[in-house]
Design a protein around this nucleic acid. Structure first.
Lengths: 245, 245
DNA sequence: TATGTTGTTTATCGATCGATAATAATTCGA
DNA sequence: TCGAATTATTATCGATCGATAAACAACATA
């Protein structure tokens, strides 16, 4: 304001915290936007406003639209950022490495899996996109079922000297047993990052105990299922009326 | 209807689908709004717009604000509608009825619990309010922990002739074992209503198998925990860096 | 130092949101 | 049957949303 030059005015944008205009290479700025958008949407959901996102980035709102044509494009990019390449193929090898006891394999797997997946961003983005009805979630759960749960049940059968899946295919009930284990583990993350409820400090110890309980409990059920105890095989049919209330 | 009264004219608001203006007693209309709002918010989340809600109700948007001063007040009311009085005190008696085998008690409990809780509205409203950071969720999880999980672990101890919680308090690790069971069960609802993924038709059978697996697996872990196997008691500390990737 | 390229901001549009005030229509008791 | 009381609608406000266009400023190169 003193010397009347435009440049000075626009740069020293008052004595506020605003760190003045910073010009970045295209790749760098794009990465910055995606990273901040991930944090932002994980926190407030995908209805979060581009103006608030821009404020957190320290840039103006229209700049975002110079990098992503629409907000939906940015969201799509966030999906990729979160889900992409967090899958470790080694996990699958680990699960079927029979040189190790099954309990040890499952413990190691879930420790590695939760280390990779149990983050604020991953869990909340996953749930938000699930509520939104995005297809990514179904694809991911199918991945878990086919690459993890089926492997787990195959290994449980092997350790119990039960028929292989080639001889007798895995039943839905067996897969559901594995979902019980997996869901119980994932629910720790839901408690922590969706409900903000207390979770154990020593997650690894809890995983060990959970796995041990599974390995000691599931085989008995499987033997019953496979060795033809039909008395408990009830007719299908879901009764979900609220008659209890 | 055939006598040409004014009522007839205004009611038959053209031959459109619009069911004409209907004047209702205050209580009735209020109940109708709350019920439809519950379905609506469960579907689209709390950012759902009052205009769309009004359209579904077949009334004008300002009418909603004649019954609820603000949208937030309506949401608060929806919370009450969903959570209130879905808790059945009989569940707690059931869990500690030692005239029944523990497996049978747990099966019956989870069948009754899921019958009352596993609804589209309940599950989605619960997750939406959790993401929003509402306190209700933490209160509810504390209820589950204190009235259900602690009871379950008390009964497991009793069946194994282990010390009562009065003699040796329940450890966090034991509670976590019960969370594993409970989370595994609730994850079925998450798969179905949050991710829209396949779930078993015969939920009751799955609950029986899951409970059986728990009752056969958990006691072994508990005996180890209680009988002083300290070798596996690792130092606390959560390692959640993504070093695996 | 001059100039073209490109990252960034300013200004603003049209649509949509929750909410309010004024008006109309329905119901029911005297 | 008439009019007060209550329910519902019409019209609209101010704020906020995603998105666009034009102007500006930083940097690389010559």
């Amino acid at each position: 304001m003193a010397d009347g030059r435009k440049t000075v005015q626009t740069r020293a944008k008052s004595d506020n915290d605003a760190p003045a205009r910073k010009r970045l290479p295209r790749n760098e700025r794009e990465q910055m936007i995606v990273r901040e958008a991930t944090r932002f949407f994980a926190e407030v959901g995908f209805e979060g406003q581009t103006r608030e996102l821009a404020r957190r980035l320290g840039v103006t709102q229209p700049l975002i639209f110079r990098y992503f044509p629409t907000k939906e494009d940015l969201i799509e990019r966030v999906y990729q950022e979160v889900y992409l390449s967090r899958w470790n193929p080694w996990w699958e090898e680990l699960l079927e490495d029979r040189s190790m006891p099954l309990t040890e394999r499952l413990s190691q797997f879930y420790k590695a899996y939760t280390t990779a997946i149990f983050t604020y961003e991953w869990v909340r983005i996953f749930v938000y996109s699930g509520l939104k009805g995005v297809n990514i979630n179904r694809r991911y759960l199918a991945l878990i079922r086919d690459r993890v749960l089926k492997r787990i049940m195959t290994e449980v059968r092997a350790e119990q000297n039960l028929p292989t899946p080639e001889e007798i295919p895995l039943s839905e009930r067996e897969i559901e047993l594995a979902w019980g284990l997996h869901g119980g583990v994932f629910y720790i993350a839901i408690r922590k990052w969706i409900y903000e409820f207390e979770t154990p400090e020593d997650i690894e110890g809890v995983l060990e105990a959970t796995v041990e309980s599974f390995v000691k409990g599931a085989p008995a059920v499987m033997r019953r299922l496979l060795e033809g105890d039909q008395t408990k095989a009830k007719a299908p049919g879901l009764s979900l009326d609220n008659s209890t209330i």
